[in-house]
């Protein structure tokens, strides 16, 4: 039986947005913590630590996000644990975001002029204080624009969680499309919702990037 595409269906899709946002928020928050660790490991003088951070980044930048989701989803079941799609997606995307943010932030940390580090040595600051008070605050300013840019990418990647059965925005669209067979309306609406979330973020990222380029050129 084919259902009408009515207000109930629209509401179903609009309410599913919250799961897209929840998954994005978890992955972004987890990725922020993981990304900081990866970035610090990557620039560490310890070769093993730097090397493993490098391998971690290469793996996540060199494999499809969909495969990363599948490996976590099916990998956990190996331990005989039944895993909810949200849990699997949250773990996979947290790792994914850690790798990407780690690489982005490594670049930002290394972009802080080395004179700053040398000055803090001269002042006798130790590693922790140097990072916390001198290097990271300056790196953070450079990092805002690319980080917001990555957030847009991450929100789009959460749509792949629909494939392992997590009912977020894209999966809700598929469910409604299967019932109503109005692909134009359904996926048009779904695309519109993603656009309404991502476009403002893209604009903010681009504006900050331009402002930073102007400051840097001065």
């Amino acid at each position: 039986m084919i259902r009408e595409f009515g207000t109930g269906e629209i509401t179903f899709i609009l309410l599913a947005v919250r799961w897209t946002l929840v998954l994005s928020a978890i992955a972004f928050a987890g990725g922020a913590v993981g990304g900081l660790l990866v970035a610090m490991a990557r620039i560490s003088p310890n070769r093993w630590l730097a090397g493993s951070a490098m391998v971690f980044i290469r793996f996540f930048q060199g494999t499809p996000p969909l495969m990363q989701l599948f490996l976590v989803f099916f990998g956990i079941t190996i331990f005989g644990i039944d895993v909810a799609p949200l849990t699997a997606a949250a773990i996979a995307l947290t790792l994914h975001a850690s790798a990407f943010l780690g690489e982005i932030w490594r670049g930002c940390i290394q972009a802080v002029p080395s004179g700053q580090t040398e000055a803090s040595w001269a002042l006798g600051l130790r590693y922790g204080m140097r990072m916390r008070h001198i290097v990271l605050p300056q790196a953070a300013r450079i990092a805002v624009a690319p980080t917001v840019g990555f957030l847009v990418q991450l929100i789009k990647v959460t749509s792949l969680a629909s494939i392992i059965g997590f009912v977020e925005l894209t999966r809700a669209g598929q469910i409604i499309n299967n019932a109503t067979y109005e692909p134009f309306l359904v996926f048009g609406l779904v695309a519109l919702v993603y656009f309404a979330i991502c476009w403002p973020l893209s604009l903010v990222a681009r504006r900050m990037e331009r402002r930073f380029a102007r400051i840097a050129a001065r």
């Binding site: 789009k156 792949l160 494939i163 894209t170 499309n177 996926f187 048009g188 993603y194 476009w199 893209s202």
Partner: peptide, 11 residues
């Protein structure tokens, strides 16, 4: 650039 590829392919 501001919508997921999977939605584009479904569309």
């Amino acid at each position: 650039r501001n919508t997921p590829f999977i939605v584009q392919i479904f569309f």
